[in-house]
Simulated assay, not measured.
Amino acid sequence: MLYTAEQADSLPAGGFRYLLTSLNDHVFAITLNRPQKKNALHPSMLTELAFALAYAHYKSDVWLVVLAAEGDTFCAGMDLKSLSQGDGENTTVPAPTGPVRLGELMTELHKPCIARVQGPVYAGGFLLVGGSTYVVASEVATFSLPEVKRGLFPFQVLAVLLEIMSARTALDLCLRAQTLTANDAKAVGLVTHVVPVGELDNAVADLVAELKRYSPTAMQFGLRAFQQLKSLPSSEQQAFLYEQFQQLQQTPDAKEGMAAFLEKRLPKWG
């Protein structure tokens, strides 16, 4: 994380400049709010995203994250002009301790993240979608990596795609800059749910309600272990997972879950 727990203990008093946030019944909503620029990511917005994700990571009251966007475009990718020239703005949050790399920020969240995709996703926007646990997309949403048309290549996106789909499919998306429909994106694993435009909010709400029935601690342990497994040799993975299970058994959620099972009642988490 680019912020400590102390730094990210509270959100900026005056709010973010390029994000809208809310915390309601353990669900932290982060909404990209630069619609006039199609939610293109520039340095100030990236810094705010890093801070908001750190807040969600550290706050025990946050069980789930919903990532959404204002306007007709989910995210147009990186704002290349601002990234090359800087935006010269005073940030609403402290400076991060290092460069903001969205792919890393998403994997460090360790809490279920639902991307609510209402419109097109381009280029670096794939890092937000690919890094989410679930992607609920409107049937009119589209997905495209146009970097090669500009003499560039989506290097960081490629790394995210390789965890979701076959290498040939990921490379083809990067090399031919084709536009995927929402159903195409679901077929290759980039999207998890495709719904009609008018059902997008209900679909997200239904998924949130389902996830909230289960142990937030167990899900956080599992998501963290999933990321940690990637750096462990296969000979050490089972011992690591056994230790994780032993630790999880000692948590209040595990004890509550077992008690509820034996008493034939619904568990009360947190």
Rank of each mutant, 00 (worst) to 15 (best):
G270Y: 00
D253M: 01
Y134H: 15
R116L: 01
A54S: 10
M219R: 08
Y214K: 14
S10L: 00
T92F: 00
Y122H: 04
M45A: 15
P120W: 12
I164R: 13
A259Q: 14
T4S: 15
Q36I: 01
Q227R: 15
L161T: 08
V66F: 07
Q250T: 13
H57F: 00
E89T: 02
F16K: 08
P99H: 01
P12T: 00
A170P: 08
E48C: 00
V135F: 05
L67R: 08
N183T: 12
G151S: 12
S10F: 04
T133G: 12
G189H: 09
F143L: 05
T192Q: 01
G71A: 11
H26W: 07
A13K: 14
L67V: 12
A225V: 08
Q7M: 09
T97V: 08
G71F: 03
L173M: 15
D9K: 13
R168K: 08
P43L: 03
H26A: 09
P252V: 05
E210T: 03
Q237R: 15
A40M: 12
A259I: 04
G14N: 14
V121C: 02
F261E: 04
P35H: 08
V27Y: 03
F155T: 11
A40G: 06
L175A: 10
R176Q: 07
L207F: 08
P99T: 02
A29K: 00
E256H: 09
E147L: 00
P112T: 01
R34C: 05
A209V: 00
M1K: 06
I30R: 01
H57L: 07
N90P: 01
G98A: 12
V135M: 03
E147Y: 04
F74L: 10
L200W: 11
D253N: 11
Y134M: 10
M219V: 03
Q247H: 15
V129G: 10
K149M: 13
F240P: 10
A159F: 12
L83F: 06
N90R: 09
T92Q: 14
T181I: 10
G130N: 03
V188S: 07
G130Y: 02
S132W: 08
P252G: 00
L232F: 12
R265F: 08
A115G: 02
S22D: 14
R150Y: 11
L180E: 13
I114Q: 11
K59Y: 05
A170Y: 07
A218S: 13
C75P: 09
P216T: 06
A141D: 02
A95W: 08
R265V: 02
L64E: 03
S60M: 06
N24E: 13
A76Q: 15
L266E: 07
S84L: 07
V208S: 04
Q7W: 05
V191Q: 07
R17N: 10
L102A: 09
A170H: 13
G77D: 01
F126V: 10
V204I: 14
R17A: 14
Q7E: 15
A123M: 11
G125C: 06
F245P: 01
G125I: 02
N90T: 11
M258Y: 01
T179L: 03
P216F: 02
A209N: 09
H42F: 14
L109V: 08
Y55W: 11
T21Q: 10
L46Q: 05
E199C: 11
K149P: 05
A260L: 04
K255T: 10
V117K: 08
D25R: 13
G71P: 12
Q250D: 13
K186Y: 01
V136A: 02
I30G: 05
K111N: 14
E48Q: 06
Q237A: 13
Y55K: 10
